[in-house]
Design a protein around this nucleic acid. Structure first.
Lengths: 214, 214
DNA sequence: GCGATGTATATTGTATACAGAATACTTCAC
DNA sequence: GTGAAGTATTCTGTATACAATATACATCGC
């Protein structure tokens, strides 16, 4: 056995599959071949299956008894459904966070929005993506509701899989500038402590995910 | 091996543990003993561990690498946090359902509210509990958002564990009558197609769960 | 008695074996 | 050639074995 890069082989498999789904090596509805994974990672079936079942619980795979695992398909309707749930919970998180956000956090968020504008203009979509995650995490973490933090995390994970850039980059640029405009608006609403405005704005902020991004 | 009451042994273990958590045989923070379960159910460790990992993903257990599984503790703060999330998503479900609820469903809901009043007065809390589940399921199922249906299901499962009745039944009766009053109000709001009213009412409808029920 | 050290025991993580079910592949009748 | 029937192969579910780690227990010095 080699150096223990991972705490457990199960986690190794988990990350490996999740990665493969994200980078489209594994396509929706495709069947998972246990033996293949075992051979690739040079491990046995036990940790592999444990990871597979966990991925199923986390909504990345489907499982049919006696016929194995397949990559979960996320059709447009499901993405839209999910974006509405995420948006609603983001709205809740924001409303809760209003009381706990200080100048420090608001300043950091402002810096992020500015940086994201640059990212987008420079077609630096990978950086944009990361910054955007941090931006939202900023206030979610201040919601003082651990269950909410965890729930949002899990929901977002379940469909963060398609990377952008597959389409026309100029079109993507225009769309993301609009999205970042919303980020700016969200920041203003935080300054104004406008809970209802935040809920309304965030509820539909994620609809874009459906086609353009992630 | 005996008659296959369960499709797989893994599912058997899953249900067994979930049950034991609900009926308080397994208490919060208590350590899970793999070997004990295996012996009790006369099966091997492989399906047992698979179930254990799944229960962890489903938030019923905690897992620490190299030191096993424990029953997840749900302190009052976490329950309150969760009730707010459930309430918010119930509000979303209700708002979405408004357009799809016909006289048939509204009639059935009315019947349920009346029946629940009887259940409560007769200290028939088990029936009340079941009816209440159906009442809420009624409109959730009409939200036309499968992801939401599944998410709510999973969130509710994660803390439906303590049964009521441990306290003074007369106090419980009074509290549940108030809760059922809210059910009646919710029904009125559906008739009025008042989405905002539904969202507001449902958001805090579940706070009671914290102490009194479930 | 109290804490440190070493040893025994139990528990966890992983590999492997094997039976039964599902799937793929042949063969054959028509 | 097409479809049914039977056989071979692969894959899934479960049991078991074993090494590595963690925990419990006992011993010893102070």
């Amino acid at each position: 056995m080699q150096a223990p890069k991972y705490q457990s082989l199960k986690d190794h498999v988990y990350d490996y599959i999740a990665q493969r789904i994200q980078d489209q090596t594994l396509l929706p509805n495709q069947k998972i071949n246990e033996a293949e994974i075992c051979k690739k990672l040079e491990i046995s079936r036990t940790p592999t299956r444990e990871a597979l079942f966990q991925l199923t619980s986390d909504n990345l795979l489907d499982y049919l008894p006696r016929r194995g695992f397949t990559v979960k398909a996320f059709d447009p309707k499901k993405k839209l459904d999910l974006s509405l749930i995420i948006g609603t919970l983001e709205g809740l998180a924001a409303a809760l966070a209003v009381e706990h956000l200080g100048d420090k956090e608001l300043g950091a968020m402002k810096a992020l929005v500015d940086k994201m504008d640059n990212d987008i203009s420079n077609h630096n979509f990978t950086d944009y993506y990361k910054d955007q995650v941090v931006f939202h995490k900023m206030y979610i973490d201040k919601s003082n509701n651990d269950v909410l933090i965890e729930t949002l995390n899990s929901l977002k994970n379940s469909f963060i899989r398609q990377s952008y850039g597959s389409e026309d980059p100029d079109r993507l640029m225009r769309v993301l500038h609009i999205v970042n405009g919303e980020h700016r608006k969200i920041l203003d609403l935080f300054h104004a402590k406008d809970k209802q405005g935040l809920e309304e704005t965030l509820k539909y902020h994620w609809r874009i995910i459906d086609n353009e991004m992630l």
